[in-house]
Amino acid sequence: MAISIKVNGVRHSVDVDGDTPLLWVLRDALGLTGTKFGCGIAQCGACTVFLNGKPLRSCAFPIAALGDGEVTTIEGVNGRTARAVQRAWTARDVPQCGYCQSGQVMSAIALLSEVRRPTDRDIDLAMNGNICRCAAYVRIRAAIKDAARTLEG
């Protein structure tokens, strides 16, 4: 069935079954491949996008449930917080294989959008849903703190 969805500010019509996870609509129908498949059961966070500005695991979200919700992917994030996070990620050389990093960056933006000066505990609670098999966690934590400082300054 044709489903109308708004992604990164652009409206699209996609012809997919309603149970298709948002992840596969983004990747296969729209070609927005920055959002990654890692587990398919909302355990790893590689597929994290924003729904109406809040983080969402797109692998566990059927497209039929989207309605008027607005989706933002790694390709569509912008603004001061997103820039601060991505700059910190690059300056710290956070990524190793890099495959989980779109999801990590999205979760970090979500955290810093709500908590300007996150504690280690805040970082643990926001970010532990994002698995990094390379275990680049030391730098993920450091980069979030760097970004927070940038946003304060």
Partner: peptide, 18 residues
């Protein structure tokens, strides 16, 4: 918690494939 709300993973209904 900020950044990892229930709704990050749990939608409005069971999603059995996941």
């Amino acid at each position: 918690a900020p950044g990892l709300a229930c709704a990050t993973c749990h939608g409005r209904a069971n999603f059995d494939p996941a």
